[in-house]
Computed example of a mutant assay.
Amino acid sequence: MIIQSLLGVVLLHLWQCGASSIMTKDLKVLVSSNDFPESALKILQEHFTVLQCKYLNFDEEGRTLAREELLNLIPGCSALVWSSNLPISKELLDKAGPQLKQVSTVSAGYNHCNPDELKARGIKLTNTPNVLAPAVAEIAVGLMLGAARRFTENLDQVRRGQWEIGFDKVLGQDLRGSTVGIIGLGGIGQAVVKRLVGFEVARFIYTGHREKPEGKALGAEFVNLDTLLSQSDFILLSAPLTDETRHMINETTLAKMKKNAILVNVGRGDLVEQEALYNALKNKQIYAAGLDVTTPEPLPKDHKLLTLPNLFVLPHIGSATVRTRREMAELAANNVVNGLTGKPLITPVQLK
């Protein structure tokens, strides 16, 4: 009798699991781009009916071919996995219909996801904030070294076959003994501090809305923005883009920096007013800059910033490692699984 009862419980559980699977298979999830990793796609396919755009949702292809296909595919979808740097349009959300419950962006930043519109429609938003911190931190350190050691000028020498030989030629600056100031001591900022310890940096300072216990644990000192700008040899931007932080680096704030200051941006392009940065670099008001993010992206090849020898630019590759992009996609997929099956979201964005 006991065995029969236990068997009945097991069979009921199996039936419920099967029924749950059938129920979630009725839900449609749209993946916005054709380059979404297979491992993450399988996570979604285990639970839902998955639609995937056959085009790359970036640049011109994303603005034309992918846009039209996404508008055709999204009606009736319950979730949208957004693998793109293009903005989510009101038109796309209108096409989706009222059953769209969640947008899962495969990125840490989410300003391109139209958060105000999502909030107004009651659509939940998730992102992938912490999983990419190590890879972006490595790029931040690379940009510091590239700008400080004048990689742009030195690579140009190699390409021209005309090396400036001499004991005092093309000298750079040291991370050793420097003061590194971090604007935005979140996961990326903290990961940068951990990686720079081995470079014998003399002092880490940071600014933000409040002092953080993580900063104290890392030996970083909390200061106001003016102090950070005036005392730092390296200034790292790893803050999110908001109305408050947009163009926070401008003519006024650049004027407060040291003449040997090196500015590094791995946040968002619009944290920096680029005309002011161009003038500061051209006039040697600051020493150099390293950018992984710009406005626009891609930066046109004839953009005047690219004429500057003291600017080192990368094409927004902060999270571009095989492991990191896979983990980002899998986190985005698991956020959708949780969101559509009534479980707590793993990395929800609090829409204000």
Rank of each mutant, 00 (worst) to 15 (best):
A133L: 03
C113N: 03
L277D: 00
N335K: 03
R150I: 02
L145T: 07
S230G: 02
I22M: 08
R121G: 13
T227P: 05
S5W: 12
G18N: 12
S319T: 09
L11P: 02
V81R: 05
R326A: 12
S232G: 02
R150K: 15
G172R: 14
L263I: 04
L299E: 13
L185E: 02
V223Y: 14
G198Q: 08
D270Q: 15
H316S: 09
V223I: 06
V336G: 01
N154C: 10
T105I: 15
L229S: 09
I22T: 10
I22D: 11
Q157F: 08
P296M: 10
L254M: 05
G189M: 03
T307Q: 12
V103F: 02
L143M: 06
S32R: 03
V103W: 04
V264F: 01
S84P: 01
T295L: 05
I2M: 11
A19Q: 14
P87L: 07
S83C: 04
F312A: 01
E46Q: 14
R176N: 06
D59N: 14
N310R: 08
I3K: 13
D270P: 09
A133E: 08
L51V: 09
L314K: 11
G189F: 09
P296W: 11
L56S: 08
T295M: 11
G177R: 10
I262C: 02
L229W: 12
I182N: 04
L12D: 07
G339F: 10
L306F: 08
K282H: 14
R210M: 00
T207S: 08
Q99I: 12
L331W: 08
G186M: 04
L228S: 06
K25R: 15
L254P: 10
H13N: 02
L271Y: 02
I182Y: 13
L185V: 05
E91I: 06
A217N: 06
L236V: 06
Q45Y: 03
A239W: 07
V336D: 09
V141I: 10
F36T: 10
V29S: 09
L299V: 06
L44P: 11
N250W: 11
G62T: 05
D233R: 08
L145W: 00
L171H: 03
V337T: 07
I2R: 13
P344A: 00
V50L: 03
F312N: 02
Q99F: 03
G109L: 12
N310Q: 14
T64Y: 04
H247C: 07
T128V: 02
I235A: 05
G290Q: 03
T207I: 00
A19Y: 13
I346M: 12
G8E: 14
K194Y: 01
P300A: 04
V201T: 10
N57P: 11
G269I: 02
R121M: 09
D26E: 15
G18C: 12
S319N: 03
G181R: 04
E327R: 12
L291E: 05
V136A: 01
L132E: 08
K101C: 06
G76T: 08
G187D: 13
A108T: 13
N335L: 03
E38Q: 13
Q285T: 14
P115I: 10
F222Q: 00
K284F: 01
V223S: 09
V9W: 07
L311K: 11
G18R: 10
N260H: 15
Q16W: 09
R195M: 07
A191S: 15
L351A: 04
G215Q: 07
E68D: 13
C77D: 08
P344M: 00
L6C: 07
K216M: 13
I205Q: 14
E297I: 10
I346T: 12
